[in-house]
Design a protein around this nucleic acid. Structure first.
Length: 291
DNA sequence: GTTCCCCTGCGG
DNA sequence: CCGCAGGGGAAC
Protein backbone atom coordinates (compact mmCIF):
# COMPACT_ATOMS: atom_id res chain seq x y z
CA UNK A 1 0.00 0.00 0.00
CA UNK A 2 2.34 2.73 1.06
CA UNK A 3 5.08 3.89 -1.25
CA UNK A 4 7.67 6.59 -0.70
CA UNK A 5 5.19 9.52 -0.50
CA UNK A 6 2.88 7.78 1.97
CA UNK A 7 5.83 6.75 4.14
CA UNK A 8 7.23 10.29 4.03
CA UNK A 9 3.84 11.79 4.95
CA UNK A 10 3.70 9.32 7.82
CA UNK A 11 7.22 10.20 8.93
CA UNK A 12 6.58 13.94 8.96
CA UNK A 13 3.39 13.65 10.97
CA UNK A 14 4.57 10.94 13.38
CA UNK A 15 7.96 12.46 14.17
CA UNK A 16 6.68 15.37 16.31
CA UNK A 17 4.56 13.11 18.51
CA UNK A 18 7.24 10.44 18.83
CA UNK A 19 10.54 12.24 19.27
CA UNK A 20 11.67 13.04 22.81
CA UNK A 21 8.91 11.17 24.65
CA UNK A 22 9.73 8.35 27.06
CA UNK A 23 8.09 5.04 26.18
CA UNK A 24 6.21 3.86 29.27
CA UNK A 25 3.94 1.13 27.89
CA UNK A 26 4.43 -1.37 25.08
CA UNK A 27 1.80 -3.83 23.91
CA UNK A 28 2.16 -6.25 21.03
CA UNK A 29 0.27 -9.08 19.41
CA UNK A 30 1.71 -12.61 19.43
CA UNK A 31 4.77 -13.65 17.45
CA UNK A 32 4.25 -13.72 13.70
CA UNK A 33 6.57 -13.01 10.79
CA UNK A 34 5.52 -9.38 11.19
CA UNK A 35 8.01 -9.35 14.07
CA UNK A 36 11.56 -9.78 12.82
CA UNK A 37 12.44 -9.22 16.47
CA UNK A 38 10.43 -11.40 18.88
CA UNK A 39 7.70 -9.29 20.51
CA UNK A 40 8.84 -10.16 24.05
CA UNK A 41 12.31 -8.81 23.34
CA UNK A 42 10.83 -5.79 21.61
CA UNK A 43 8.69 -4.95 24.63
CA UNK A 44 11.67 -5.19 26.98
CA UNK A 45 13.96 -3.17 24.74
CA UNK A 46 11.57 -0.29 24.10
CA UNK A 47 10.44 0.26 27.68
CA UNK A 48 12.00 3.40 29.14
CA UNK A 49 13.58 4.43 25.82
CA UNK A 50 12.89 7.53 23.79
CA UNK A 51 13.32 8.29 20.09
CA UNK A 52 15.92 10.87 19.05
CA UNK A 53 15.17 11.04 15.32
CA UNK A 54 12.94 9.45 12.70
CA UNK A 55 14.46 8.96 9.26
CA UNK A 56 13.24 7.40 6.03
CA UNK A 57 15.09 5.41 3.40
CA UNK A 58 12.87 4.27 0.55
CA UNK A 59 9.83 2.73 2.21
CA UNK A 60 11.59 2.10 5.54
CA UNK A 61 11.28 4.24 8.63
CA UNK A 62 14.25 4.22 11.00
CA UNK A 63 13.78 5.46 14.55
CA UNK A 64 17.03 6.16 16.44
CA UNK A 65 16.67 5.25 20.11
CA UNK A 66 18.46 7.01 22.96
CA UNK A 67 20.51 3.88 23.72
CA UNK A 68 22.09 3.77 20.27
CA UNK A 69 19.80 1.09 18.92
CA UNK A 70 17.38 1.57 16.04
CA UNK A 71 13.82 0.52 15.38
CA UNK A 72 13.08 -0.35 11.75
CA UNK A 73 9.51 -0.09 10.54
CA UNK A 74 8.09 -1.15 7.19
CA UNK A 75 4.40 -0.70 6.40
CA UNK A 76 4.14 -3.48 3.81
CA UNK A 77 0.86 -3.37 1.88
CA UNK A 78 -1.64 -2.48 4.59
CA UNK A 79 0.43 -1.01 7.43
CA UNK A 80 -1.01 2.02 9.23
CA UNK A 81 0.96 4.09 11.72
CA UNK A 82 -1.07 6.66 13.61
CA UNK A 83 -1.84 8.15 17.01
CA UNK A 84 -4.77 7.64 19.34
CA UNK A 85 -6.13 11.11 18.69
CA UNK A 86 -7.24 10.25 15.18
CA UNK A 87 -10.32 8.73 13.72
CA UNK A 88 -10.87 7.43 10.23
CA UNK A 89 -13.31 4.91 8.74
CA UNK A 90 -10.27 3.38 7.01
CA UNK A 91 -9.22 2.09 10.42
CA UNK A 92 -12.35 -0.03 10.56
CA UNK A 93 -13.38 -3.08 8.57
CA UNK A 94 -16.23 -2.64 6.11
CA UNK A 95 -18.55 -4.44 8.54
CA UNK A 96 -17.67 -2.07 11.34
CA UNK A 97 -18.00 0.88 8.98
CA UNK A 98 -21.47 -0.26 7.97
CA UNK A 99 -22.53 -0.34 11.62
CA UNK A 100 -21.72 3.35 12.00
CA UNK A 101 -24.47 5.86 11.55
CA UNK A 102 -23.40 8.43 8.96
CA UNK A 103 -21.20 11.13 10.41
CA UNK A 104 -20.69 9.21 13.64
CA UNK A 105 -17.13 9.22 14.97
CA UNK A 106 -15.59 6.94 17.49
CA UNK A 107 -12.18 6.74 19.05
CA UNK A 108 -9.89 4.08 17.61
CA UNK A 109 -9.94 0.88 19.65
CA UNK A 110 -6.91 -1.37 19.21
CA UNK A 111 -7.99 -4.62 17.52
CA UNK A 112 -6.39 -7.93 16.59
CA UNK A 113 -4.51 -6.21 13.74
CA UNK A 114 -2.90 -3.62 16.00
CA UNK A 115 0.49 -5.29 16.39
CA UNK A 116 2.34 -2.58 18.27
CA UNK A 117 1.06 -0.02 20.76
CA UNK A 118 3.30 2.54 22.43
CA UNK A 119 2.22 4.56 25.45
CA UNK A 120 4.30 7.40 26.86
CA UNK A 121 5.10 8.81 30.27
CA UNK A 122 2.97 11.88 29.67
CA UNK A 123 -0.69 12.48 28.98
CA UNK A 124 -0.18 12.80 25.21
CA UNK A 125 -1.37 10.49 22.45
CA UNK A 126 -0.39 6.84 22.08
CA UNK A 127 1.12 5.44 18.90
CA UNK A 128 -0.34 2.48 17.00
CA UNK A 129 1.03 0.27 14.24
CA UNK A 130 -1.82 -1.64 12.65
CA UNK A 131 -1.44 -4.05 9.72
CA UNK A 132 -4.21 -6.34 8.52
CA UNK A 133 -2.14 -8.46 6.14
CA UNK A 134 1.00 -8.55 8.26
CA UNK A 135 3.28 -7.88 5.30
CA UNK A 136 4.73 -5.05 7.38
CA UNK A 137 7.86 -5.50 9.48
CA UNK A 138 9.28 -4.38 12.80
CA UNK A 139 12.86 -4.99 13.77
CA UNK A 140 15.07 -3.79 16.59
CA UNK A 141 18.62 -3.18 15.38
CA UNK A 142 21.42 -3.39 17.91
CA UNK A 143 24.13 -0.76 17.85
CA UNK A 144 26.63 -1.29 15.02
CA UNK A 145 24.59 -3.96 13.29
CA UNK A 146 23.43 -3.70 9.71
CA UNK A 147 20.09 -4.94 8.52
CA UNK A 148 20.55 -6.83 5.24
CA UNK A 149 17.30 -5.38 3.85
CA UNK A 150 18.50 -1.84 4.45
CA UNK A 151 21.96 -2.66 3.16
CA UNK A 152 20.51 -3.81 -0.16
CA UNK A 153 18.53 -0.62 -0.77
CA UNK A 154 19.62 1.59 -3.61
CA UNK A 155 19.64 5.38 -3.50
CA UNK A 156 16.41 6.97 -2.32
CA UNK A 157 14.34 7.83 -5.40
CA UNK A 158 14.13 11.52 -4.44
CA UNK A 159 17.93 11.76 -4.28
CA UNK A 160 18.71 9.73 -7.41
CA UNK A 161 20.52 11.00 -10.50
CA UNK A 162 19.39 10.20 -14.04
CA UNK A 163 22.84 8.85 -14.87
CA UNK A 164 22.41 6.26 -12.12
CA UNK A 165 19.11 5.10 -13.60
CA UNK A 166 20.63 4.92 -17.08
CA UNK A 167 23.63 2.95 -15.80
CA UNK A 168 21.32 0.54 -13.93
CA UNK A 169 19.26 0.01 -17.08
CA UNK A 170 22.23 -0.81 -19.31
CA UNK A 171 22.32 -4.43 -20.35
CA UNK A 172 19.09 -5.20 -18.48
CA UNK A 173 16.40 -6.91 -20.54
CA UNK A 174 13.73 -6.67 -17.83
CA UNK A 175 10.80 -4.35 -18.47
CA UNK A 176 11.62 -0.81 -17.44
CA UNK A 177 8.79 -0.86 -14.91
CA UNK A 178 10.25 -3.93 -13.21
CA UNK A 179 13.54 -2.05 -12.93
CA UNK A 180 11.78 0.95 -11.37
CA UNK A 181 10.22 -1.33 -8.75
CA UNK A 182 13.60 -2.88 -7.88
CA UNK A 183 14.39 -1.38 -4.47
CA UNK A 184 18.11 -2.04 -4.95
CA UNK A 185 18.07 0.36 -7.92
CA UNK A 186 15.77 3.13 -6.65
CA UNK A 187 14.43 2.86 -3.11
CA UNK A 188 10.83 3.90 -2.53
CA UNK A 189 9.17 3.43 -5.94
CA UNK A 190 6.03 1.30 -5.91
CA UNK A 191 3.26 0.34 -8.29
CA UNK A 192 1.31 3.60 -8.43
CA UNK A 193 4.18 6.00 -8.96
CA UNK A 194 6.04 3.70 -11.39
CA UNK A 195 2.94 3.66 -13.62
CA UNK A 196 2.40 7.41 -13.27
CA UNK A 197 6.03 8.33 -13.99
CA UNK A 198 6.13 6.08 -17.07
CA UNK A 199 3.00 7.75 -18.41
CA UNK A 200 4.42 11.24 -17.88
CA UNK A 201 7.65 10.18 -19.60
CA UNK A 202 5.66 8.58 -22.49
CA UNK A 203 7.38 5.21 -22.01
CA UNK A 204 5.55 1.88 -22.04
CA UNK A 205 6.04 -0.17 -18.88
CA UNK A 206 6.88 -3.23 -20.98
CA UNK A 207 9.83 -1.71 -22.84
CA UNK A 208 13.12 -3.49 -22.12
CA UNK A 209 15.19 -1.36 -19.74
CA UNK A 210 18.20 -1.27 -22.06
CA UNK A 211 15.99 0.23 -24.80
CA UNK A 212 15.39 3.33 -22.72
CA UNK A 213 17.78 6.04 -23.86
CA UNK A 214 19.83 8.35 -21.68
CA UNK A 215 17.51 11.27 -22.51
CA UNK A 216 14.46 9.15 -21.71
CA UNK A 217 16.03 8.16 -18.39
CA UNK A 218 16.39 11.86 -17.63
CA UNK A 219 12.74 12.47 -18.50
CA UNK A 220 11.67 9.41 -16.53
CA UNK A 221 13.53 10.29 -13.36
CA UNK A 222 12.43 13.88 -13.49
CA UNK A 223 8.80 12.79 -13.95
CA UNK A 224 9.19 10.33 -11.10
CA UNK A 225 10.51 12.94 -8.71
CA UNK A 226 7.81 15.40 -9.72
CA UNK A 227 5.11 12.80 -9.06
CA UNK A 228 6.61 11.76 -5.72
CA UNK A 229 6.96 15.36 -4.51
CA UNK A 230 3.48 16.29 -5.63
CA UNK A 231 2.04 13.25 -3.87
CA UNK A 232 3.80 14.20 -0.62
CA UNK A 233 2.33 17.70 -0.97
CA UNK A 234 -1.18 16.33 -1.35
CA UNK A 235 -0.87 13.86 1.53
CA UNK A 236 -0.20 10.69 -0.48
CA UNK A 237 -2.68 8.38 -2.26
CA UNK A 238 -5.68 6.97 -0.41
CA UNK A 239 -7.07 4.43 -2.84
CA UNK A 240 -7.66 1.44 -0.56
CA UNK A 241 -6.19 1.58 2.92
CA UNK A 242 -3.86 4.49 3.31
CA UNK A 243 -4.83 6.91 6.02
CA UNK A 244 -2.59 9.74 7.12
CA UNK A 245 -1.32 9.61 10.71
CA UNK A 246 -3.74 12.42 11.53
CA UNK A 247 -6.66 10.43 10.15
CA UNK A 248 -6.92 12.41 6.95
CA UNK A 249 -6.99 10.83 3.50
CA UNK A 250 -4.38 11.77 0.94
CA UNK A 251 -5.52 13.30 -2.34
CA UNK A 252 -2.98 12.30 -4.96
CA UNK A 253 -5.35 9.66 -6.36
CA UNK A 254 -7.42 12.53 -7.78
CA UNK A 255 -4.48 13.55 -9.97
CA UNK A 256 -3.42 10.17 -11.34
CA UNK A 257 -3.31 9.58 -15.06
CA UNK A 258 -3.28 5.78 -15.39
CA UNK A 259 -3.02 3.81 -12.15
CA UNK A 260 -6.20 1.73 -11.69
CA UNK A 261 -7.88 3.73 -14.47
CA UNK A 262 -8.07 0.75 -16.86
CA UNK A 263 -11.25 0.76 -18.96
CA UNK A 264 -11.40 4.53 -18.49
CA UNK A 265 -10.38 7.04 -21.14
CA UNK A 266 -6.89 8.50 -21.15
CA UNK A 267 -7.16 12.06 -19.86
CA UNK A 268 -4.82 13.22 -22.62
CA UNK A 269 -5.98 11.35 -25.77
CA UNK A 270 -9.20 9.48 -24.82
CA UNK A 271 -7.75 6.06 -25.69
CA UNK A 272 -8.84 3.41 -23.18
CA UNK A 273 -6.23 2.81 -20.47
CA UNK A 274 -5.03 -0.79 -20.46
CA UNK A 275 -4.16 -3.05 -17.58
CA UNK A 276 -1.63 -5.85 -18.02
CA UNK A 277 0.31 -8.07 -15.64
CA UNK A 278 4.05 -7.55 -15.33
CA UNK A 279 6.10 -9.52 -12.83
CA UNK A 280 2.96 -10.52 -10.92
CA UNK A 281 1.93 -6.88 -10.49
CA UNK A 282 -0.64 -4.93 -12.43
CA UNK A 283 0.60 -2.26 -14.83
CA UNK A 284 -1.52 0.49 -16.36
CA UNK A 285 -0.72 2.50 -19.46
CA UNK A 286 -2.05 4.29 -22.52
CA UNK A 287 -0.86 2.64 -25.73
CA UNK A 288 -1.28 5.88 -27.68
CA UNK A 289 0.64 8.16 -25.31
CA UNK A 290 3.31 5.63 -24.31
CA UNK A 291 5.71 3.94 -26.74
C1' DG B 1 14.75 -14.15 -15.21
C1' DT B 2 9.97 -16.13 -13.71
C1' DT B 3 6.92 -18.32 -9.91
C1' DC B 4 5.27 -18.89 -5.57
C1' DC B 5 4.54 -17.56 -1.01
C1' DC B 6 3.42 -14.84 3.09
C1' DC B 7 -1.97 -12.81 5.03
C1' DT B 8 -6.66 -10.78 5.32
C1' DG B 9 -10.57 -8.60 3.38
C1' DC B 10 -13.44 -6.77 -0.34
C1' DG B 11 -16.14 -6.85 -4.32
C1' DG B 12 -17.92 -9.13 -8.50
C1' DC C 1 -16.59 -19.23 -5.85
C1' DC C 2 -12.98 -16.17 -7.98
C1' DG C 3 -9.69 -12.34 -8.61
C1' DC C 4 -7.68 -8.40 -6.71
C1' DA C 5 -4.82 -5.28 -3.46
C1' DG C 6 0.51 1.23 -2.70
C1' DG C 7 4.92 -5.01 -0.30
C1' DG C 8 9.08 -8.03 -0.56
C1' DG C 9 11.78 -12.43 -0.20
C1' DA C 10 13.07 -17.06 -1.45
C1' DA C 11 13.01 -20.86 -4.41
C1' DC C 12 13.36 -22.89 -8.88
Amino acid sequence: MPELPEVEVTRRRIAPVLIGRTIARVKTTAQSYFFLTPPSRLRRALLGRSVLALARHGKYLIASLDDGRELLLHLGMTGQLFTSTVYSPRLLSATQRGALTPGEQQRFRPDAHTHLQLGFGDSGPELYFRDVRKFGKVRLLDRDTVDPRLARLGVDALAAKAEHLFASARGRRVPIKTLLLDQSVLAGVGNIYADEALFLASIRPTRAAHRVSRVECQRLLSALKRVLRRSIETGGSSINDFVGPDGQDGHYQDERWVYARHTQACKRCKTLIERIVLGQRSAHFCRTCQK
